[in-house]
Design a protein around this nucleic acid. Sequence first.
DNA 1: CCGGCGGGTTGCGCCAGCGCAAATTCAGGC
DNA 2: GCCTGAATTTGCGCTGGCGCAACCCGCCGG
Lengths: 239, 239
Amino acid sequence: MAKVDSSLVADLPLFAGLSTADLDAILSEARSVRVAKNSPVFEQGEEAHSFFVLLHGHVRASKATPAGEQIIVRYVATGETFGVAKAIGLQRYPATATAVDDSVVLAWPSGAWPRLVEKFPALAANTLQTVGARLQESHTRVMEMSTEQVEKRIAHALLRLVKQSGRKVEHGIEIDFPISRQDIAQMTGTTLHTVSRTLSAWEGKGLVESSRQKIVVIEPHKLFMLAEENPEAGSSFKP
Amino acid sequence: MAKVDSSLVADLPLFAGLSTADLDAILSEARSVRVAKNSPVFEQGEEAHSFFVLLHGHVRASKATPAGEQIIVRYVATGETFGVAKAIGLQRYPATATAVDDSVVLAWPSGAWPRLVEKFPALAANTLQTVGARLQESHTRVMEMSTEQVEKRIAHALLRLVKQSGRKVEHGIEIDFPISRQDIAQMTGTTLHTVSRTLSAWEGKGLVESSRQKIVVIEPHKLFMLAEENPEAGSSFKP
DNA sequence: CCGGCGGGTTGCGCCAGCGCAAATTCAGGC
DNA sequence: GCCTGAATTTGCGCTGGCGCAACCCGCCGG
């Protein structure tokens, strides 16, 4: 099994407050696994055999409704923990995790979790913070879906992606993994048609540039203003 | 300070796996507080001074958008933990908690959390499960808002309320605390008008009976079928 | 170099549900 | 018993965004 250098992961939130020795002990139980682009790490409904840390690449967590429609729960960025189903009391994964780029994950058997937590309680505390942060994000999403129009929701989603996984390029900031209109639709609760129209309009205004599975935000600040602006703001008066 | 009998709370998920002695030690740090109907337990943005367990009554957790609109995050039922902001790494409460009925809460100072967790690691593990469960619920809500029409969302919300806080009455199951059309609208991302129309229609079909701040579900099963039914189901073919 | 296919774009018509407004009802307080 | 205000109901018109359908484009494999 490939050894993992503890210095690579020492700064991850999951391992906050642990000594190097502790970290080595924990890492000794992990395997490092390569996941090819578009391959699943695990699938919704499957026995939650492992939990993971993403070392390299990008992973999409998606959830299928009983009726068969899909939504995207989140994109996992490098260094984040995912698949912690057992830790939150689930026997099966509640979502599917798919690599959207060639990726590398660290995997621990779920069975190791209770033992690790007992020996290193900081793991539970750290995971609690992570899960708490996700809960906040999910609530934010519910708020946006309840109160904002589609264009703003898309703007917010894009800004979040840029913040989380933006890569500086020539003319702006590019989202650092392949993402389709359909994906954005599934993140914002709309259709790929509407996303396409919206991006086209923004492209016309010079806010973004996009092509297949690729989006570059040219004017993050203008996009931000669009996302935040008050729809009332004195736009309605007749000359 | 009023003493709390440990037998009253021994079965709560938060205290799973703790001995009676441990429980007494933990309870000795709590105060019991009465909160009058329509009074806040804490408010969004306020310093997270305490965390709570609801002993009696019902509490609504709501969140205001930057633009000033409100959504309802959830209703807290008896025995549930809430206000655990500090435990998930927040300095301030992310939402407002309001008693919707005369209620009684147990309150611990947030400062006690790290010490309690150190001494009783089960607290962290139990809270992790609770927060994880809420994350699942929130994801379910996102899925519903993304893929379901308003009527089904309202049906699902009602069924959840009935399950969580239903009280058997003469003709059906009543939601055991005052809840307005507006409240349901804020839970499902719609308007009070649409909720009103929907409930009126259901009342016409004998599924529910409702009046001011009161809803009785007469036919839970029919409501469930309505919530789950496939809109496609062979209704559209041309001869 | 070619063909096919997975994305992406765009025009068109429609409708669920919203916004507005007015009327009605009910629960308390006085 | 009356008054007030909050909660609810309901009609009406409008529109954001969806569904459909046709079409385009660029990448990849052969």
